[in-house]
Simulated scan of single mutants.
Amino acid sequence: MANEKEPFTSSKAPEPVGLYPHARRVGNLLFLSGVGPRERGTKQIPGVELDEAGNIVAYDIAAQCHAVFRNVRYILEEAGSGWANLVDVTVFLTNMKADFTIYNQIYAEYFKDNQPCRTTVEVNRLPTPIAIELKCIATMGAPEKEEAA
């Protein structure tokens, strides 16, 4: 990432759906905008089946979880950070009752070594027909080594 406070847009993560960057660095912190499971260069959303009107007919929350975590990783790595540098993750789910258990199991697989602070909330809907979105904060550079107690 070139300069602090400069907006950063990934070449691998899906294009933002509005006028905002994928991330912005301030000091040693990298703030990510909301990241969903869409695929770059297409409106395709892994695991989502839409009707002719664009309404969700069926979706696979596991496929969306894997896709959104992959997109977050793309942004982090291209910006000069990394998965192990995540310090805070806010997760937005559109159906906590149906999806939380599966999402929580997949989350545990991805975050078994690095355990950032986490908040998970249910929202009525998201800007595109997705069931999950992440908002993240990470540190820049190599992850700090933990000191022995």
Rank of each mutant, 00 (worst) to 15 (best):
N71T: 06
I106F: 04
F100H: 13
D99E: 08
V57W: 05
A13L: 12
A23Q: 02
E15A: 09
P21Q: 07
L19W: 01
R25T: 07
A148D: 12
E147D: 10
T128V: 15
V68L: 08
R38C: 12
A79V: 09
C136L: 10
P14T: 07
R25K: 14
P7E: 13
G54Q: 04
Q105G: 11
D88C: 05
D88Y: 13
G18Q: 06
K12Q: 15
Y20W: 14
G36S: 06
H22Q: 07
E6V: 14
R40Q: 12
A63R: 04
G80W: 01
K5R: 10
A23I: 10
I137Y: 00
V26M: 11
P37L: 05
N28M: 09
T120V: 15
F8E: 05
S81V: 13
R118C: 15
E39A: 12
N85H: 03
K5Y: 13
V35P: 00
I130S: 04
P7S: 07
T128H: 04
T90S: 10
N95G: 12
P127C: 05
L29T: 04
N85I: 10
T9D: 08
T128K: 12
S10N: 10
A58W: 03
L29D: 03
F31K: 00
E109M: 09
G34E: 14
R73E: 14
G47S: 07
A2V: 15
F92G: 01
C65Y: 00
E144W: 01
V48W: 03
A98T: 11
K145E: 15
F92M: 14
P46N: 02
A63L: 12
V17L: 11
S81M: 13
P127S: 02
E15S: 11
A142N: 03
K145D: 13
R24C: 13
E144V: 08
L50S: 07
L134M: 13
E39M: 13
F92A: 02
L126W: 04
